[in-house]
Design a binder for these strands. Structure first.
Length: 269
DNA sequence: CCCGGAACCTGAAGGC
DNA sequence: TGCCTTCAGGTTCCGG
């Protein structure tokens, strides 16, 4: 699933193909993909625009346009952005043709992904919590977001208004790295553990970016290549396998209907 | 505001 | 071989 490290990788690898380019063709064949306009209006407003730069906020990818509008993409569960796919790519929902000959395809098996045209990026950025790899994210900021919350820490970490960009995999990985049980009440964490959690969130995300994201399920980079971050997972998607630290079998429980993987020995309630 | 669950969506996987 | 159910999880919406 595309979380912050995956979207960051996609952004970085799209920049050489897309930044500064003119959009000379737009094809959309799924009316649920685009907002807030009809397919026709959406294509019309995009055609002839130049992509001045790309940016990312949380799991949102922004294409800044010469009209000063922003094309915002969210890949949700199974979306991917592919440069120059061979044409037989299944589940292609939209294709942008660029003036350098490159084609950018939005591919999404489960059709939950969205692209929309916004006046500016604040339309999504405003409701998000701190951006974890910037100076605005500190242990104090995290502590403030966690205090008084009665929900399990795992559920709170998935709240994009707490920290932007953390999803199911990296929440599990961060909680393991901090040795915190996913069901522990967020508001009960002592400041020492919040400090630790803050540090490992940054480390886990940075290291996953260095590995170009985790290719579990359908994630792939714009080139079609896979990321390698999942090879370093300690708990995510490792039910029944042994803990790298203590050898105990990794367990999976459901929290808010999300699979949560943890080591019952390293992460005690 | 906070919390938990359902809905959205489709392909894979497992049970019988 | 095939039908059916369950599972995957990012976001949004809704009821308590």
């Amino acid at each position: 699933m595309p979380e912050l490290p995956e979207v960051e990788t996609i952004k970085n690898e799209l920049i050489p193909h897309v930044a500064g380019r003119l959009i000379i063709g737009v094809v959309v064949d799924d009316d649920r993909l685009v907002r807030p306009y009809s397919i026709g209006e959406f294509c019309h407003k995009l055609l002839g625009q130049r992509v001045t730069r790309l940016s990312r906020r949380g799991k949102y990818l922004m294409f800044h346009l010469s009209s000063s509008n922003v094309l915002i993409a969210h890949l949700r569960m199974t979306g991917s952005l592919v440069i120059n796919s061979t044409g037989d790519e299944a589940h292609t929902r939209a294709v942008l043709q660029l003036d350098n000959g490159d084609q950018l395809a939005f591919v999404d098996r489960r059709r939950l992904g969205v692209m929309w045209l916004a006046k500016n990026e604040d339309e999504v950025a405003a409701k998000l919590g701190a951006e974890p790899l910037t100076a605005e994210f500190t242990a104090e900021v995290l502590a403030k977001k966690l205090q008084c919350r009665q929900a399990p820490i795992k559920a709170v970490l998935l709240d994009q208004a707490v920290v932007a960009g953390i999803g199911n995999m990296y929440a599990d990985e961060a909680l393991f790295a901090a040795r915190i049980h996913p069901l522990k009440k967020a508001g009960d964490l002592p400041s020492r553990e919040i400090e630790k959690l803050y540090k490992v969130i940054v480390n886990v995300l940075q290291s996953a970016i260095e590995n170009k994201g985790a290719s579990v399920d359908t994630y792939k980079r714009p080139s079609g290549e896979q990321g390698t971050a999942h090879y370093e997972f300690n708990v995510a998607h490792r039910r029944g396998e042994t803990c790298h630290v203590c050898g105990t079998a990794i367990e999976r429980i459901a929290i808010r209907n999300r699979g949560s993987y943890f080591c019952p020995n390293c992460q005690k309630l």
